[in-house]
Design a protein around this nucleic acid. Structure first.
Lengths: 241, 241
DNA sequence: AGATAGCAAACTGTTGACAGATGAGTGCCA
DNA sequence: TGGCACTCATCTGTCAACAGTTTGCTATCT
């Protein structure tokens, strides 16, 4: 999100040819710490201690914390510093409402707009998905393969991608505060398969329905009851262009 | 966005009872400087000079710049610092695509969900709008009255509001880079009136259409040609709940 | 004259230290 | 024994200075 070279995954404190500013490395590490629970919801961030732990000084760390703040990972209290954000069930419901809006449209656009090379990448992922499905239920994607990020990219709209990635982060935070839920990996894979299949077939309507179904199931898993509260309707829209 | 007390408008470097951290005051000032053109697109931000101009040191200023970065107002280059972001015509098109998605839904939800007191506030704004319409064409809303923010608030979804406000900022940036366009104030007021009327009547379909029409006209003004490129369809959706 | 290597100024990235605020703990008083 | 004021350690907010990089300029060589 800041430099070309930055990747969203676990940024190590190593040194590439052009080592990134400590601030940017810290952003990556902090994001990971929040979504993995190394920093727990509601916990106060002790700057001096954390800086020492990362082996940097408070300056770059404070800059990183500001970024986390803008991304919704932490909140600030006057003269008390930063606290890891917790999301209320209502906020999580709101989040999934917006996520559905964004990602369903992304799936539609991906089906309508994806380039040939893009379709190729989707096919690869589809193949990986099928292999995982044929294997055991403890299957998991390799970490660099993320269906939602891929769909957002295929949609070919820089702003949609920016917002979508932001929401992906929020979802990770929501999963932390809501606590780990029962294993849904296998089910999710099957839903992914349907999404991928629809997009590679360039079928916007089917992509719409498949993504919507997937997201609602994902939400229902977080809150087994009351999932039907959001009634946004599943009407497909005409494809763009 | 960071503390309760922060307001989005022109934050002065004064001191309330609990004076905000310099960093937060700087965020407000910098946002204003970008959207008013005091800092021009593409311009490099000289930290030492700007800090001196604001009467603060580089520390808090750098933290503020990080926030601006996360908000999309500035971009970073390694060892070159921060530069005020410019948006390409394509990025602006993308922005308006997403804005339509978000704000049209917000208008629908506002019509469906707005509380009685919320409807009251909308009626007030409707009245102000009518007064302005009956006056000269140089009429303008008082700065604290923003239809789009109000609609986002009425939609009663914290995440939708967060994303929507973010997009509002992007739009301001887009207006700067696209340059001031011909006077559309009067036309915009009429469109606002239709939106307000629809929401206070709790008519989601009409609110949908009115907001969509308004946003497309707003986009067309920035790019008089090629506005029809985004063909997202104007189908109304069922109201939520 | 044009190109190139070296130098110096300017600026970012980073650090450590100071000042003010917060809140937990302590002792005093009713 | 319960409540309250005070004290003090801890931590955030802020600043000033140091270090490494980038870039424009100058001088030299071809």
């Amino acid at each position: 999100m800041q430099f070309d070279e930055e990747r969203s995954g676990a940024a190590r404190l190593t040194e590439p040819l052009n080592r990134l500013p400590l601030r940017d490395q810290a952003v990556g590490v902090l994001r990971d710490m929040v979504v993995t629970g190394a920093l727990r919801g509601g916990e106060r961030i002790n700057e001096a201690e954390l800086a020492a732990r990362l082996g940097i000084s408070r300056g770059p760390l404070r800059e990183a914390i500001q970024r986390l703040g803008a991304e919704g990972f932490v909140e600030f209290r006057l003269n008390r510093g930063a606290f890891v954000r917790t999301m209320s069930p209502e906020q999580i419901r709101h989040l999934y409402e917006v996520r559905e809006l964004i990602e369903v449209r992304a799936a539609e656009l991906a089906a309508a707009r994806a380039s040939e090379t893009g379709i190729g990448r989707l096919r690869e992922m589809l193949q990986v998905t099928d292999e995982l499905l044929s294997q055991g239920s403890d299957a998991a994607y390799p970490p660099e393969l993320d269906l939602h990020e891929l769909v957002l990219e295929m949609a070919d709209n820089s702003e949609l991608r920016r917002i979508g990635s932001d929401l992906q982060n929020q979802v990770k935070l929501a999963r932390m505060t809501a606590g780990r839920a029962p294993d849904r990996a296998r089910q999710a894979l099957a839903e992914h398969r349907e999404i991928l299949s629809a997009i590679t077939a360039r079928d916007s309507r089917r992509a719409n329905r498949a993504m919507r179904k997937h997201l609602r199931a994902s939400f229902a898993q977080l809150f087994p009851l009351g999932a039907a509260e959001t009634d946004l309707g599943a009407r497909p829209s005409d494809a763009a262009r």
